[in-house]
């Protein structure tokens, strides 16, 4: 088993003794003990496992770790640029009290962050399109949309 090197949240991490087919999701959770990224369906259907790969939102449950060797991954734990200053989306999520159970919200925020990095002022339709791959069983969609608009207003692409 080869050693895999990935840049996770700005830090180079080496993972040895891992099956190269292991999805990025489980490499993060089981091998790096970073559990903010969640398992929901294992088939890229729910979006709970969304992370950024080289800046783009991807479903980490469906990407083998061997394919991300040498690349950069950002997870919910590393979304805030600095520990004391959260991403505007994280602030907006708290202000609008988006979470119910909260399980899907890391994936929701990662998808939203990817949207705002491409489109600083998205319309409702832009939001619906970008967030279509993220399911929320509790039904927090209204607040997710509101929080994305609110973060966009406050310069959420940052």
């Amino acid at each position: 088993m080869p050693t895999i090197s990935i840049n996770v949240n700005g830090e180079l991490r080496e993972i040895s003794d891992i099956d190269p087919n292991t999805p990025l999701l489980w490499a993060l959770r089981d091998h790096l003990q970073m559990v903010g990224t969640k398992f929901g369906c294992g088939k890229g259907l729910c979006g709970a496992c969304t992370v950024h790969l080289n800046g783009a939102a991807v479903r980490s449950c469906s990407i083998p770790i061997s394919e991300v060797d040498g690349q950069s991954v950002t997870t919910i734990e590393g979304l805030a640029a600095k520990a004391h200053k959260l991403h505007p989306l994280q602030d907006a999520w708290m202000e609008h009290d988006v979470p119910q159970c909260g399980y899907c919200q890391a994936g929701q925020i990662m998808s939203a962050a990817s949207l705002l990095s491409r489109n600083a002022n998205p319309s409702d339709t832009d939001i619906d399109d970008a967030m279509a791959g993220n399911l929320c069983r509790c039904g927090t969609y209204k607040r997710i949309r509101k929080a994305i608009h609110s973060a966009a207003t406050k310069g959420g692409a940052a």
Partner: peptide, 29 residues
């Protein structure tokens, strides 16, 4: 009043909270 959830900060920063997040030394899956 409108009082946001007490776990919100931990939720939006991906801190371990849920059953699935439980870690222990030598944990088997």
């Amino acid at each position: 009043k409108f009082i946001p959830g007490v776990d919100n900060q931990a939720l939006v920063t991906g801190q371990p909270l849920f059953g699935i997040d439980q870690q222990l030394p030598g944990l088997l899956h």
